[in-house]
Amino acid sequence: MSDAQKAGDRAVSHEAADVSDRDGRTGTFGPGRRLSCLAVVVAVLAVGTGGFVWLFRDQLFHPFGDARACEGSDTKLPQVISAGGAPIPDGASDVHYYTRNGRAEVTFVSVQIPDYLHRAGILPEDEPLFDEKYGTKADADDEIELPDGLCGSPLRGPAWVYGSTSATGSGVKVMVERSPEVFDSLRIPARAVVTYNLH
């Protein structure tokens, strides 16, 4: 082999070594490249898992896949909840329920609570909202915690508690927010809590 060929081979070898060592990479699968690929794979998996959890959050974190159901509930309520003898008002918001051992507690916010009370037979038509034949003032005047197990926002006092017997003969209790300014009115809208037997 001539001196010129040897010199050419040495130049090619040095060039390859320079490319190989540049930025700490050796070939296509050096340690730096492997770390970059691993970071990309981890990021893709994290985004995919996060998207899956977000998409199926109701099914993953609520009983029966129902966002209205509170943790520990043992019976799923239908889409239209009949609480204490009548469906809760159309358009009710912030609806939550807790079911345990054949009993249900439902909370919701609505402007139509007087109508609901009449439809459920809890308060007869044309009777005043706060007739003591059908209810009584709640003990607390300020915030009132929801019953154990029932999730959602507490009631704001003052509140009124109605007691009734449903068509099946079981007891129904409705606690509802009363207006703090207008003596003979509910809050608009008002939060209610209805407790009743499922059967």
Rank of each mutant, 00 (worst) to 15 (best):
G48E: 07
G85Y: 01
E125P: 11
A11G: 08
A190N: 05
G163P: 04
M175P: 08
V44H: 04
G32S: 11
Y196E: 10
F56Y: 15
T165E: 11
G32D: 12
C37A: 15
G91C: 01
G30F: 00
G157T: 00
A39E: 07
C151V: 06
I122R: 00
R187E: 09
G152E: 04
V47S: 10
C37W: 12
D141M: 05
C70H: 00
V12N: 09
P189E: 04
H118Q: 09
F52A: 14
V95H: 00
S185C: 14
K6S: 13
A192P: 04
P114T: 02
E71C: 08
T26V: 15
P89N: 03
D94E: 05
A4Q: 11
A39Q: 15
R33T: 11
L35M: 12
R33F: 12
V194S: 02
D94F: 01
D139N: 08
D58S: 10
A104F: 01
L186Q: 11
L35G: 14
T107H: 00
G135H: 04
A69S: 08
A43H: 09
E177Y: 09
H96N: 03
V161F: 02
V12L: 14
V193K: 06
D66K: 06
K173E: 13
G27T: 08
G169D: 02
A86L: 00
T136V: 14
Y162S: 01
G65C: 12
D131S: 08
G30P: 04
D90I: 04
W160R: 00
G152R: 02
G84K: 02
V95G: 03
G30M: 12
T49L: 14
A7T: 11
D21S: 14
G121W: 05
V172D: 07
L150F: 03
G50C: 10
T136M: 06
L117A: 02
R68Y: 04
C151K: 09
H96Q: 07
V194M: 07
E127W: 06
I122H: 01
D21V: 13
S36G: 14
Y196L: 05
I188G: 13
L186R: 10
S2N: 14
R103Y: 05
